[in-house]
């Protein structure tokens, strides 16, 4: 692998994504992408006593599913990169504690999935691993409980707020295979434009997405039209519009082939999700369920997957801190 430009890495031996798996909650099961997910749950508890246990079970079962789909299991898997939103990443570590695979807990808020894939690709390209598992999860109820208010509180959600996706996505990366391949990555910088409103995460993360996007084009010399699709993680309706307009002021027109997982996963009108979906599982399930299938079926051949994260927590927002954003991009090509 080698670095090109300021922050992009091109892989000499691009890892292949062997297979993916996704499990989603009931609300996502009523959304426009429902038919693409591997499993749709009927209730948020899934037989568990707490939201946290339910989230752990979702990521655990998703990981089991990707192992059986890719027929790569147990000791054949060298490492695992996983992370989530709960304090100290407990969903991932509890969910994966029985897998017996060397485990890296990663945190990049909602960008975790792609962050994990970036790191995994480096290990595979460098020859340190053959198969690596990447997974992430989020749960509406556990996230609301940790970051916002109890579910039974009778408050109103402002129109800029986003709905945390309940679910988990997992991808199995390998050193050889038939593709699609992760050909390069552009890890993002932390960008903070001073947005403090934790009910407007899309706006807080959009500048980070812009920074990564433009750097990626400059570093690689590619144009937006190089890709069949440019996809961000969870900017939502507001963040998506901001990114399109701000990219235009920098001379990049992404209107035609750009979309956002948070926009795709829910139907804004009928599901009352305001600015769209968010959470680690937003990009995790949408990529694993929908986009991976599109790549496999060759309906899409080149995509830029850019997961966005808001690097904040409940304490920092109570202390009036602004919300730093981050966006990690990987190019996935057939």
């Amino acid at each position: 692998m080698k670095k090109v430009g300021t922050q992009t890495v091109m892989f000499d031996h691009p890892p292949t994504i062997v297979d993916t798996a996704s499990i989603v909650g009931p609300k996502e099961s009523q959304g426009p992408l429902a038919k693409y997910f591997d499993q749709c749950l009927e209730d948020e508890f899934w037989g568990e006593k707490t939201w946290e246990k339910a989230e752990s079970k979702i990521i655990k079962e998703t990981v089991n599913m990707v192992m059986s789909k890719s027929v790569i299991t147990g000791e054949a898997i060298d490492f695992c990169f996983a992370g989530d939103l709960l304090n100290q990443c407990i969903s991932s570590s509890f969910g994966l504690r029985e897998t017996n695979i060397p485990f890296f807990g990663v945190f990049g808020a909602c960008s975790t999935f792609v962050e994990g894939m970036c790191l995994a690709s480096c290990l595979i390209d460098g020859g340190a691993a053959t198969n690596i598992l990447c997974a992430t999860s989020s749960h509406f109820c556990s996230a609301e409980k940790q970051f916002r208010f109890p579910l039974e509180l009778g408050n109103q959600r402002p129109p800029t707020s986003q709905w945390t996706v309940t679910g988990a996505g997992a991808a199995m990366l390998a050193s050889s295979g038939t593709g699609p391949y992760i050909t390069c990555m552009t890890p993002g910088k932390i960008v903070d434009m001073g947005i403090k409103d934790s009910n407007n995460m899309g706006a807080a993360m959009a500048p980070a997405a812009l920074q990564t996007l433009i750097t990626h084009f400059k570093d690689t010399g590619r144009k937006p039209s190089y890709y069949d699709a440019i996809i961000t993680g969870d900017l939502g309706h507001i963040g998506k519009e901001i990114l399109i307009e701000m990219a235009e002021t920098k001379g990049y027109n992404i209107k035609n082939n750009y979309n956002d997982c948070g926009v795709l996963i829910f139907d804004k009108e009928s599901q009352d999700t305001h600015s769209g979906g968010s959470g680690c599982a937003c990009v995790g399930t949408t990529f694993s369920g929908y986009f991976f299938r599109q790549l496999k079926e060759r309906k899409l051949n080149k995509i830029l997957l850019m997961a966005t994260g808001a690097l904040t927590n409940a304490t920092s927002s109570q202390q009036g801190e602004s919300i730093p954003g981050i966006a990690h991009a990987i190019a996935i090509e057939n």
């Binding site: 609300k27 579910l151 039974e152 009352d272």
Partner: peptide
């Protein structure tokens, strides 16, 4: 009571 999700 048991915690429940908002159906909204």
């Amino acid at each position: 009571a048991k915690p429940k999700i908002k159906k909204q």
